[in-house]
Nucleic acid binder design. Sequence first.
RNA 1: GGGGGGGUUCCCGAGUGGACAAAGGGAACAGACUGUAAAUCUGUCGGCGAACGCCUUCGGUGGUUCGAAUCCACCCCCCCCCA
Length: 436
Amino acid sequence: MSEASRPRDAFLEELRWRGFFQQCTDEAGLADLLARETVTAYIGFDPTADSLHVGSMLPIMGLVHLQRHGHKPIAIAGGGTAMVGDPSGKTELRQLLTVEQIEANLRGIKAQLARFVDFGEPGLADLPHGPVVQAGPDNRGILLNNADWLADKNYIEFLRDVGRHFSVNQMLARDSVKTRLEVGLSFIEFNYMILQAYDFYVLNRDHGCRLQMGGNDQWGNICSGVDLCRRLNQQEVYGLTFPLLATATGAKMGKTAAGAVWISPERTSPYDFFQYWVNVDDRDVSRFLRLYTLLDRERIEELEALEGADIREAKRALARAATALVHGPEAADAAAKAAVALFVGGGDESTVPGTAIDPGRLAGAGLELLEALTETGLCKSKGEARRLVRQGGVKVNDAVVADETRRLTASDVADGRIRLQLGKKRHHHLVPREAP
RNA sequence: GGGGGGGUUCCCGAGUGGACAAAGGGAACAGACUGUAAAUCUGUCGGCGAACGCCUUCGGUGGUUCGAAUCCACCCCCCCCCA
């Protein structure tokens, strides 16, 4: 990319106005570097599950912006470091994963990352739409597993080559360690920052990586890596962190009562994903528009100007854009339509989450409603389902159910489905279908 | 290795022989109010059951007792101090 088309710190500027910028090891130095050349930067992702969730979307978007500005992203799936467990931001010892779990998780995560970043490998992504960024030949992304260079490391050798550059005094002073000192920190976790620093060193050495980004809880680990690169490679490298997000009510980003909001459509349906964004707190809309969509600044500011009930329009735009990023524009449209159908009335409800049931169970006396509610996972137990009914929180085909012994029969089926509603906004369809 | 303090229901945290499915708070859920928001108010918040009730739970395993989250023994785990 030519000098002219790369304003001095367009990337940093975008991170700043969008709210990605928390702190940087050397802002001026990094800005100069970004202006001079195509910079290779990396972010690590923990394969703690087979899918990423909304919480990981922030760093992912960091890579997206990086690549959009012509720089080269590296995503590390931490197959090696996951063996150890990062103590940062955790209050207690993390459960160690087995090698098999980690490998299975890596496969899922890699495919998801490829939805966002162009790794130049067409077969990689499992998404219907392409990566949201199109890269040129010099800034295609790289996807690596740090197990490749960590797994076979010899302990003694590692201690001598890498360990001697670490000061325990300094490690103890890191916030990530300090906060854990009171509740306990195992030696294996204590080592995590060394491994992460080593990642940075390897990436710098082998891929010319000059920047590591991550959540602010990674600051200590990132600084360790910057130091290590300086010592071992005599290279000036940089670190930049994103803020740790909480919602306006103080909850962790991307968590709902039902658990995390996942990127995988199997774990969180596109409809539920869309609803997550529609239901965010008013106070979060502006930040989220900036962080989780690629809408341009002008459009976002327009949406931010909305007040009162009109904020819902901004939420819909947010939901539409975020869902389109993760599940593709078609899925986003379908989810939006389903939402209109359910909350406004009329229209296409086909993407409302549903469960197939054997039509035979609706014959005769039919199926107990309470049972249907637990079987579909809408309620954890029949007790909970019963409670809901007693409180007037259950509707079948838009009619409040007063009778907790209510049974569902074939006569409840309309348009090929029985429509269940819990509370004001949880919708689910029961679809009679022969089991295969 | 020695001494001290702990492990309670989703989380925090009371409870030290029966009235305990276990105070209180938070989270969560439902209802009212609203804008599929927030705040507020009300209710619910282990499982089964229409209900009387029954069953499972207080780190683990045994024991004492008519009866144990509460007492005893051993074990596991965590924190602090000393070595």
